[in-house]
């Protein structure tokens, strides 16, 4: 897959090539070139299948990483293209015109990470969280345990240390 990387690199700015398996590789692309790169991959190199679109929250580097995973049915190989977004202004171009199913992933990313994809149909509709009013839930600075404790009531209960509890129960005289 290194040859493929080198071929693409002639036209696009790529970096961080990483070959994970013989038929699986990743590379990081420029945000501005992404649509052109995906179109090129799809139409020239026959990576015709969009496997998934997902995001990673790099909180410490203040970045979002979006991964587009493409699959080539002819040689049975996967190529993952990453782009980095600014975490303070997470806006990305939509790819729903290249792959129709892309809009579902984008809707999900919008709901879970708060990444906006202007122009993607129905991107603002709730996907699985109906009526959610808090922050996007998969961002790492969202503290789900704290939110849960503040929002939902707990059933009070006795929590016991098993060792000492059983000791007390079985051998009370000790």
């Amino acid at each position: 897959m290194k040859e493929l990387y080198d071929t693409i690199s002639l036209q696009f700015t790529l970096k961080d090539f990483h070959q994970q398996k013989p038929n699986l590789a990743f590379a990081t692309a420029e945000k501005q070139q992404l649509i052109a790169l995906l179109t090129y991959m799809r139409d020239v190199h026959r990576y015709t299948h969009l496997v998934f679109v997902t995001a990673v929250d790099w909180l410490e580097e203040n970045r979002f990483q979006i991964t587009y995973m493409l699959h080539n049915y002819d040689i049975k190989a996967d190529f993952g293209i990453r782009v980095m977004l600014d975490r303070d202004k997470p806006v990305m171009e939509s790819i729903h015109h290249l792959w129709e199913q892309g809009r579902v992933y984008q809707r999900e990313l919008h709901e879970m990470f708060g990444i906006d994809f202007p122009g993607s149909p129905g991107v603002n509709e709730p996907m699985i969280l109906e009526g959610w009013q808090g922050p996007p839930v998969m961002r790492r600075d969202f503290d789900t345990a704290k939110y849960s404790l503040e929002t939902y009531d707990h059933r009070p209960r006795d929590t016991r240390e098993p060792e000492s509890h059983m000791k007390e129960k079985l051998y009370p005289e000790d």
Partner: peptide
Amino acid sequence: AINGGMYWDSYNTVKRIDQ
């Protein structure tokens, strides 16, 4: 369903259905 179980800290799961 009783106390949240392993989802006790989930942002979207109610504990105590009896409420």
